[in-house]
Computed example of a mutant assay.
Amino acid sequence: MKSSYKFILGLALGLTVVLGIMMTAFSLPAVKSGINNVPIGLVAPNEATYDKLAKPLSDKGFKVKHYDSTADVKDAVNHRKIYGAFEMSATGDLSLYQATAASAAVAQGLNQIGQGVVTQQKAAAKAQLAPMMAQTTDLNTLKALNAKSAAVDTKTLKVVELKSFPKADPKGTGLAAGALPIALGGWIGAVAIANMIKGKKQKFYAALAFAFIGGLGLVGVIQFGVGTFDGNYFLTSLGAMVGIAATAFFVLGLLEVMGNGGLGIAAVMLILLGNPLSGLSSAPEMLPKFWGALGQLLPPGATGTLLRDIAFFNGNGIAKSLTVLLTYVVVGWILFTIGKKSVIDASTSETNA
């Protein structure tokens, strides 16, 4: 039976909508990415100094919180409350406590800001010394001023790395590149199971086996092949298993309930939206506000964040991402249980013709 022109037109319109969603998901974050309430800390000797530093940071889009000591800063970074912090000493020396493993993009941005502050400090000090050096005729005074000027020239930003990627992948490129494999791999795996495995119980066991073996394989490649991770391999693999299970069961559930329609919905959520909105290449707070939050509610973003927290931050901060992924597992399992389709309905297009 030939497809009707009405069906052809409807399909073209539907594909155009998908194309628009895909273009928006990939291009908007790239164009609008920036600092959107990125949480950082600030240690200052007094309120005046704090206010002087905090205001320009807030104006740039940072969510600045005051901390009493560097020990508090380190604890906050380890518990995933902030991405890093600045400390201004009583003598005016600026230090940056960064966590590249939390976000290489944020660490780079903080570094640039810190360098800018130090450059401004040096320029202000030079401007203050210049007229004094020009007016004095006393050799001892001039010598002392020259010494101060030389000291100003040596002033630098002190950078303390709190959480870094391994030397094999210092910028965490392997994790950033993992968003698409996480999204596409789980989707492909679920489709393969739906088509190639016969029997509902067998598909369930196949999804479990895929999550278990796939988690070990995914982290194995990232840790031993690429060198992005250097933490506990098996604990990190458990996180990957949960992420793959979330994707696999969710896709299988949609397929059992909706057939090809469910496959399209899963592709939009996991690949077209989940991949670019994962925040793995920067940070969720560096995406446009709504998009960054949405990305963390989708399996690729939640899985990436879970892996990062387990591998580098001792499991701190995993509650949200773990809850999101387990929700997908449960919802997918429920849909899979109540669904009646044992294979993808390949005749859908013909019945709509």
Rank of each mutant, 00 (worst) to 15 (best):
Y83A: 07
Y83T: 07
Y83N: 08
G84F: 02
G84H: 04
F86W: 07
F86K: 07
F86H: 08
E87I: 06
M88T: 12
M88Y: 11
S89Q: 05
T91R: 15
G92S: 01
G92Y: 03
D93W: 11
L96A: 02
L96R: 02
Y97C: 10
Y97A: 04
Y97K: 06
Y97N: 11
Q98K: 14
Q98N: 14
T100R: 09
A102G: 10
S103P: 01
A104W: 10
A104V: 12
A105Y: 10
A105P: 10
V106T: 03
A107E: 06
A107W: 05
Q112G: 11
I113T: 10
G114S: 09
Q115P: 08
G116R: 06
G116W: 07
V117W: 09
V117A: 09
V117H: 13
Q120N: 09
Q120L: 11
A123Y: 14
A123R: 15
A123S: 14
A124Y: 08
A125S: 14
Q128F: 15
L129W: 02
M132I: 11
A134I: 12
Q135Y: 10
N140C: 13
T141Y: 08
K143D: 13
K143Y: 14
K143E: 12
A144G: 11
A144M: 09
L145C: 03
K148G: 04
S149W: 13
A150T: 09
A151E: 14
A151L: 12
A151D: 11
V152S: 02
D153G: 05
D153K: 10
D153R: 07
D153A: 11
T156M: 15
K158Q: 14
V159H: 03
V160K: 10
V160P: 10
E161C: 09
K163D: 11
F165K: 03
P166G: 02
A168L: 04
A168R: 05
D169W: 00
G172Y: 06
G172E: 08
G174T: 01
G174N: 01
G174E: 01
L175A: 07
A176M: 06
A176Q: 07
A177N: 14
A177S: 13
A177F: 12
G178R: 15
P181Y: 03
I182S: 08
I182E: 11
I182K: 11
A183R: 00
A183L: 01
A183H: 02
L184R: 04
G185D: 02
G185V: 00
G186N: 01
W187I: 05
I188V: 10
I188M: 03
G189M: 03
V191E: 05
I193P: 00
I193R: 00
M196R: 15
K198M: 09
K198F: 10
G199Q: 06
G199Y: 04
K200V: 04
Q202N: 12
Q202C: 10
Y205F: 10
Y205T: 07
Y205Q: 06
A206V: 00
A207R: 00
A207L: 01
A207V: 00
A211H: 01
A211D: 01
F212T: 12
I213W: 05
G214Y: 06
G215F: 05
L216R: 03
L216M: 02
L218F: 15
L218W: 15
V221D: 04
